[in-house]
Design a protein around this nucleic acid. Structure first.
Lengths: 197, 197
DNA sequence: GACGACATACCGACTGGTTAGTCTGCTGAG
DNA sequence: CTCAGCAGACTAACCAGTCGGTATGTCGTC
C-alpha cells in the first residue's frame, strides 16, 4: 500500500471528506467543482474516484456521518433514568451544542439535501425520521406523565424545535455574546417553557 | 407594443417570474437552466434578457417580492392598537399562513440566498434584518410591559421562531391533519406559551 | 390618413467557458 | 510480479449570456 497519507498524517479519504465538507458549506454543492475538492485535499481526481463512486457519494457520506453522531448522542441522553423533563432538556441542549460544533455539516444538511439522488435522499430522510421519532417519544412520555402540556401535538413541537436548530448556521454568530452552551441552554429553556402545562 | 401576453393573459415578465419561482423551488437555482425557464414560460432567451439583466436578477426579484409582502403585513399587524400579546400572536400566526401560501418562495429563500451576488445578498439581508427588528420590537414591548418573560433575550426568541418558519417548506405537508390556519395558531401558541412569565 | 422614424418586444443561433466522470498508465510495497 | 493507490490528460455534455435580426406598435408631420 503506497503512501495513503501524503504530507500530513490523515488518510486520503478523510482528507477528501473534510475538504468537501468545508467547500460544500462555503459555496454550496453545485458551486463546488470536483477539481476544487481534490486540490484542497492535495490529491487528484484519480484518488477521489478511487474511493468514492461520484460527487454525490461524497455528499451522502457527510450526511451519514452527522446522522450517526446525532442519533448516538440522542439515544444516550434519552435512555438515561433522570426525570423526563431533565432528559428532554439535556437532549435538546446537546443537539444545539453539537450542531454548533459542526456548523458546516448543518448548513450543508439544510441547503443541499435536495441535491442527493432520489434513493439516497430517501435513505437520509428515513434516518432523520427515526431521529425525530425518538425525540418525539420523549415528549409524549412527558405528556403522558402529565409534566408537559398536551395543547400542542408532540410532532409539531419537534418540528418547531428542529426548524430553529437547522437554521442555526444562518443566524448563529460565533462572536455573539453567548457561548454555545449558554445558547443551547436558552433554547432548551424556550422549549421547556413552551411545554409547561 | 407587440403582444406582451401571447397565448394566455399574463404579461411575459410575470410568466417568467412564475416559471422561475416554481423551477428554483423544485430543482434549486443552479440546477435550473435559463433554457428551462424560458421554455416553461413559453418564450425564448431573448425575452428573458430583455426584461431581466441576468439569471441572478430573477432570483433577486423573487426575494424582493416576498420581503415586500411580509413587511407590509407585519407592519399592519404590529401597528394596531390591540394589547401586545394579541398583536404578537396575530403577527406570528399570519407569517405562518402567508409562508404556507407561498411555500415555493420560502424554500427558495432558505436554500438559495447564497447564490445571490454579494451586493444583492447584502441588500436582502438588510431588508430581512429590518423585518426581524420590527418583530423583536414587539416582543420587547411586551417584556417591558411585563406580560412576557424576560428570561430569554428577545432577538433569540425571534430567531427561534423564524427558524421554524423558514423550515416550513421542509416539514409542512398540505395533506396533513391541520389546515394552514390551525397550524399557524398552534405555532403562535407555542411562541406565546414560551413567553409566559 | 398616409408615411416615415423610431422604439419596444422578442427570436434563436452561436460562443467561450466549465464540469463530472473516464481511462490509461505509473509507482512502490509486499 | 502484482495489485492497491493514485496521477492527469481527455471527452462529451451543458450552460449563461451575446448579438444580429425581425415584427409590431407609437408618434410626429404634412
Amino acid at each position: 500500500m503506497p503512501r495513503t497519507t501524503d504530507g500530513d498524517g490523515t488518510p486520503v479519504p478523510q482528507r477528501l471528506l473534510a475538504a468537501a465538507t468545508r467547500l460544500f458549506a462555503e459555496r454550496g454543492y453545485d458551486r463546488t467543482s470536483v477539481q476544487e475538492i481534490v486540490e484542497a485535499a492535495g490529491v487528484t481526481k484519480g484518488a477521489l474516484y478511487h474511493y468514492f463512486g461520484s460527487k454525490d457519494d461524497l455528499l451522502h457520506e457527510v450526511y451519514a456521518r452527522v446522522l450517526r453522531l446525532q442519533q448516538e448522542r440522542l439515544d444516550a441522553f434519552a435512555g438515561g433514568d433522570a426525570p423526563v423533563e431533565r432528559r428532554l432538556r439535556e437532549a435538546a441542549a446537546d443537539v444545539v451544542v453539537t450542531t454548533i460544533d459542526n456548523l458546516d455539516d448543518a448548513s450543508i444538511f439544510f441547503r443541499s439535501m435536495h441535491h442527493l439522488s432520489p434513493e439516497k435522499n430517501k435513505q437520509v430522510r428515513a434516518e432523520r425520521r427515526r431521529y425525530h421519532e425518538r425525540f418525539r417519544a420523549l415528549i409524549e412520555e412527558g405528556q403522558k406523565a402529565g409534566v408537559f402540556s398536551t395543547d400542542t401535538p408532540a410532532d409539531l413541537v419537534v418540528d418547531y424545535h428542529f426548524g430553529s436548530i437547522h437554521h442555526l448556521s444562518t443566524w448563529y454568530r460565533p462572536d455573539g455574546p453567548l457561548t454555545p452552551q449558554q445558547l443551547a441552554d436558552q433554547l432548551a429553556d424556550l422549549l421547556l417553557r413552551a411545554l409547561r402545562p
